[in-house]
Design a protein around this nucleic acid. Structure first.
Lengths: 242, 242
DNA sequence: CGTGTCGTTGAGCGCTTTCAACCCTGGTGG
DNA sequence: CCACCAGGGTTGAAAGCGCTCAACGACACG
């Protein structure tokens, strides 16, 4: 982890290019840029430790940040995979609570750290920012609830089915290729599965003809049956009965 | 489920007595009371169905509302147990999304339904309300993350241990009685366990001398060992080896 | 005294995990 | 050019944990 010295002007430029700050006014950016820092992270570098009282809110400039909870058996539960233009940490700042997750780089990454005091002040003074943030956090809460729904599925096969369905962009039943948005290991950790089980479930669905896949490219051939799987669940019967 | 006709004045009075509206200005209450309805629910009555586009945000006046996701095997995953003075549904209104959970009465209950349009307008006009709501949703998100952490624990024993620890009010290691905040069945469903497993884990911890309990009254005798259990995990060894 | 709800306990099965070895790909350096 | 290595992923076999099903107990209520 490396703290890069960047002039406020450069920082403001960087901000202007991030989707997170789309539609913001110039002077607002300028105020937030005060005390902001840019951080470079190598893959696996730890940015925030669970329990920290973080003093900044973070926006990802490039790369990917993994938010996860370390577990007693050495495994981890992935909460979120934060991509370029997305942010994290706001709730902790707003509520002045300890950070509930670790944050580490999933790939080499650059991150913008916006100072907590500055952020809070701006939040308090700007109706625009407050409303925007409210929408953001609401969305994040809803998204988290979707994740819980997936993890709550009784069988691992259903978990994976649900996950694939939620990956579907918006266009309907079109047979279409999906690219898994992260390492399978991380996806598995987000679904509350072991890497091996995730792999097996994908293999099973492929063998059944629901999907095809090579690497992180998945092609769903039968949305209907996939949906059926997700909502009904099938006993994962052994296939040697022909 | 029963819709009670109540005059705006009465509704405003009810609101003034709820902790949710503590510190609000009179005229703000008056504006929100417009179009608000009071609803009576018998135990198990369904208020919101997953997927609904709800047209109100809800505040519990009395009783208890269970928020849960129905699962394919007939079981359900409890998201939250909303008590008197607490609210739910804001994120859906703010984001205009489908409701991600069912809401049903855990006991006979009374609920205040605040009209979506009115709520959104007020949210937009009142800095006070926006800021307050931002804090509320942030807190809820953090709380949800804690729930995920608990559910992510590798063994059911650790899940229960974590849960009990989070129940600890604030006062430290004092041997103190805790009252389970809901039916054991619902707590189990919130931990992602079957009712039976939850019961067995409690029994095990009692047998080991960590806790004592009768009904919903739990007395923790050894916080230290409980903490150890939560963070280390032990193989749940059979006890016949003395 | 019956009925319904809530909780506990027991027995058995099956899914997931764990541990292991192995494959595949891309990068690196001799 | 190829050997080597590291990281990511797949596959196999075994074992344990939690679920399901079922019966029973406790308690409140009409």
């Amino acid at each position: 982890m490396n703290l890069i010295t960047v002039s406020p002007g450069q920082i403001q430029d960087t901000m202007a290019r991030l989707s997170y700050f789309e539609g913001w006014e110039k002077d607002q950016l300028a105020r937030l840029a005060v005390g902001a820092k840019q951080i470079s992270l190598a893959k696996k570098d730890l940015l925030v430790t669970k329990g920290d009282r973080i003093q900044a809110m973070y926006v990802v400039i490039s790369g990917q940040i993994r938010l996860f909870i370390p577990l007693s058996n050495g495994a981890e539960r992935v909460i979120s995979l934060v991509e370029k233009g997305e942010s994290f940490g706001e709730p902790c700042l707003i509520q002045s609570e300890h950070c509930p997750y670790n944050a580490a780089a999933g790939k080499d990454a650059h991150v913008l750290a916006i100072d907590a005091m500055v952020y809070r002040r701006e939040l308090h003074h700007s109706t625009f920012l407050a409303e925007r943030t409210l929408g953001l956090i609401s969305q994040r809460l809803l998204h988290t609830l979707r994740d819980i729904e997936i993890c709550a599925q009784p069988s691992s096969l259903q978990r994976v089915a649900h996950y694939l369905l939620h990956l579907q962009p918006a266009g309907e039943s079109v047979t279409r290729e999906i690219r898994l948005p992260a390492l399978k290991r991380d996806i598995a950790a987000k679904l509350g599965l072991s890497q091996e089980t995730f792999s097996r479930m994908l293999a099973f669905m492929a063998q059944q003809g629901f999907i095809q896949f090579t690497g992180s490219l998945v092609q769903v051939d039968d949305w209907a049956r996939l949906r059926g799987l997700a909502s009904a669940g099938c006993p994962m019967e052994v296939s040697d009965k022909n």
